[in-house]
Measured scan of single mutants.
Amino acid sequence: QIFVKTLTGKTITLEVEPSDTIENVKAKIQDKEGIPPDQQRLIFAGKQLEDGRTLSDYNIQKESTLHLVL
Rank of each mutant, 00 (worst) to 15 (best):
E50M: 08
G52A: 11
F3N: 05
L7Q: 14
K47R: 12
V4Q: 00
L70M: 13
G52M: 10
S56K: 13
E23Q: 13
Q39E: 11
I22V: 12
Q39G: 06
K5E: 08
Q39W: 09
T54I: 06
D57T: 05
D31P: 02
F3V: 05
D51L: 05
Q40I: 13
K47S: 08
G9H: 05
D31C: 12
K26N: 01
V4S: 01
A45I: 06
L42N: 00
K5N: 07
E15D: 13
T11I: 15
T6R: 06
F44Q: 03
R41Y: 12
I2K: 01
I35E: 02
V4F: 03
L66T: 02
G9V: 02
Q40K: 02
L55N: 00
L49W: 01
L68G: 01
L70A: 10
L14M: 04
L49Y: 01
K62R: 10
S56T: 09
G34A: 05
R53S: 07
Q40A: 05
D51F: 04
T11Y: 09
T54N: 05
V25T: 03
I2L: 08
V4W: 01
G52R: 09
S56Y: 08
I60G: 01
L14H: 00
Q61W: 08
Q30K: 12
N24E: 12
F3I: 07
L7W: 14
P18L: 15
T13K: 08
I35W: 13
K28C: 05
A27R: 13
P37R: 14
L42T: 00
D57F: 11
I2D: 01
L70V: 15
V16A: 08
Y58L: 06
T6S: 06
I43K: 05
E23A: 15
H67I: 14
S56W: 09
A27M: 12
L68K: 00
D51T: 06
L7K: 11
L42R: 00
N59V: 04
V25G: 00
V25Y: 02
I60Y: 02
E33P: 01
T65W: 08
I2H: 01
V69Q: 10
S64M: 11
G34K: 06
T8V: 08
T8C: 14
D31S: 11
L66E: 01
E23H: 10
Q1L: 14
E17F: 14
Y58W: 02
F44L: 05
D51S: 07
G46K: 04
K10L: 12
K26Q: 03
